[in-house]
Nucleic acid binder design. Structure first.
Ligand code: MN
Ligand code: MN
Ligand code: MN
Ligand code: MN
Lengths: 217, 217
DNA sequence: TAAAAAATTTAGACTTATCTAAATTATGAA
DNA sequence: TTCATAATTTAGATAAGTCTAAATTTTTTA
C-alpha cells in the first residue's frame, strides 16, 4: 500500500502535529534525520496521494486518511513494544528500535490477533495509549513534573523521551511507571527539583528530566 | 547489514541449492518472480560481498557466510510461523506471507527470546526443521508419498508446497501433520494414489499432491 | 519597509533495484 | 563439429529515495 519511507513520514508528521497545527519541513527533516530537500520531495508525493494538506512554504497537516494510516502505525508500534516487554521480558529501554521495524509489518489481522493475545492492553511500556482496531484511544491527560509546585504529588504514568539513556537513568533512580512521587523542593536557580519517591527515597532531578517525566495527578 | 532484496536472494539460492550443487540465474529469477538480468546484477553485488561463489555463465553457490545469513533468515521465518500458529491461532495455510515480512526483522536477541518464549520448537507448522541460534538443525529425512509402494505406511510430517491452496486442500481431506496413512492402491495410468487415513477414511490423491506430501516412515 | 537571515524549494546528481532489448556465451542435436 | 537454440550477461532506462548546492520565498530585524 504505502512504502516504508511514506509510513515514516506520516508517523513523524502525526507526532509533530501534537504541538502545532501545521508542521514545518525543517521539523520533519530533524525528526527523521534527513535533509529539508528530501522532505519537500516526499511532501509532494504524499500530497499527490491526498494523505497530507500541503501548500508550498506553508507547512503540512495530515488529511483524515493520512491520520488514519499514522494512527495504525502507532498502534502497531505500541502493541509490539508491549509484546516485547510483557511476553519476551525485554526492558522498557530496549524495545523502541525493534518496534520501529515491526510497526511496518502490514497484516491487519496479525495485529488484531496480537492485541487479543495480550488481552487488549491500554498503554505501552512508556505509558502511551494504544489505539484500538478502529484507531480510537484516550488522549492521555498527563502533566510533566516540571509543571508541578512544591507539595504537589501524583503517579508516574509516562515519559516523553524514549531514548534508552533516559529510560535507563529513570530505572536506576527507581522513577518507573506506577511510582508515587511528591515534590519536596524546586531549586530557583536552575529549576531542578527534589522529589520523594513512595514517601521514602529523596532524589534530585534536572529541569530537563522533569520536562520528560509525565504524571497523572 | 544486508538489504531486504539481498536477503531474499540469499534465501532463494539456499532453497534452490538443496536440489543442485550450483544454482542457475534462471532458477533464481523464476523463484523470485524477477528477470534474469536483474538476477545477474544482484549476483555481482553478492559476489563482491563474498556471500556467493559466482563465475559468469556458471551459476552460483553460497559461501559459508552467505549460508549463515540464509539459515538465519529461515530460522526467523519458521519461528514466526510457529508463533503465528501456536500463539495467535492462525491456520497453517495463512502464515507464510506474514512470515515473509517478519523474517527480515533484524534483532538477533528478539528472535532468540521468541525461541525461548515458545520453548524451542523443533519444527514449523509445515514440518520444516527450525535451526537453533547457532544455525544447526536436523536435515529432515522425509519421503514424498509418491515414492511409497502399496501397503507402505507412515506419518504425515511435512509438505513441500506451502501455497494456501494446497494446504487448504490438505486440511479439507484431513491430511494434516501427525496423521497416519497407508497406501491402498496406486493407479498405474496416472500414478494417482488411494490412501487410508488413520485406518479409516480412504481418499484418492493425484501424483502431484503425492509429490508434495512428505512422510516419516 | 527594506535588507538580512532563515526556511523552503528546485536543479541536478547518486544509489539501489528493477526492466526491456541487444549482445554474448554455452549446449545439444544433427 | 557445426549451428540453432537456450541461457546468461551487458547496455541503457526508469522509479524511489536521498544528497549538495543554488535559487526562491518568507520572516525577522533594524
Ligand atoms: Mn517507541
Ligand atoms: Mn512506546
Ligand atoms: Mn513459509
Ligand atoms: Mn513453513
Amino acid at each position: 500500500m504505502n512504502t516504508l519511507a511514506e509510513e515514516n513520514y506520516l508517523k513523524s508528521i502525526y507526532h509533530l502535529s501534537i504541538d502545532a497545527e501545521n508542521v514545518s519541513t525543517n521539523q520533519i527533516a530533524a525528526s527523521l534525520n534527513t535533509k529539508a530537500s528530501s522532505v519537500t520531495d516526499m511532501l509532494k508525493k504524499l500530497s499527490d496521494k491526498a494523505l497530507i494538506n500541503y501548500t508550498r512554504y506553508q507547512g503540512v497537516s495530515l488529511t483524515p486518511s493520512g491520520e488514519k494510516i499514522a494512527v495504525n502505525i502507532i498502534r502497531k508500534h505500541r502493541l509490539w513494544e508491549y509484546f516485547l516487554v510483557e511476553k519476551l521480558k525485554f526492558k522498557w529501554d530496549q524495545v523502541h528500535d525493534m518496534a520501529e521495524e515491526m510497526e511496518h509489518i502490514s497484516s491487519a489481522e496479525l495485529i488484531d490477533r496480537l492485541d487479543e493475545f495480550m488481552d487488549y492492553p491500554q498503554h505501552d511500556p512508556h505509558g502511551e495509549p494504544i489505539p484500538d482496531c478502529n484507531g480510537r484511544f484516550n488522549a492521555s491527560e498527563l502533566t510533566p513534573i516540571s509543571a508541578l509546585r512544591v507539595n504537589d504529588s501524583g503517579t508516574i504514568s509516562g515519559v516523553r523521551d524514549h531514548s534508552s539513556s533516559f529510560l535507563q537513568y529513570l530505572e536506576k533512580q527507581q522513577l518507573t511507571l506506577g511510582k508515587k512521587i511528591s515534590i519536596m523542593e524546586i531549586v530557583e536557580f536552575d529549576h531542578s527539583m527534589i522529589l520523594q519517591i513512595e514517601n521514602k527515597k529523596e532524589i534530585h532531578i534536572s529541569r530537563e528530566a522533569a520536562n520528560n517525566l509525565l504524571i497523572a495527578l
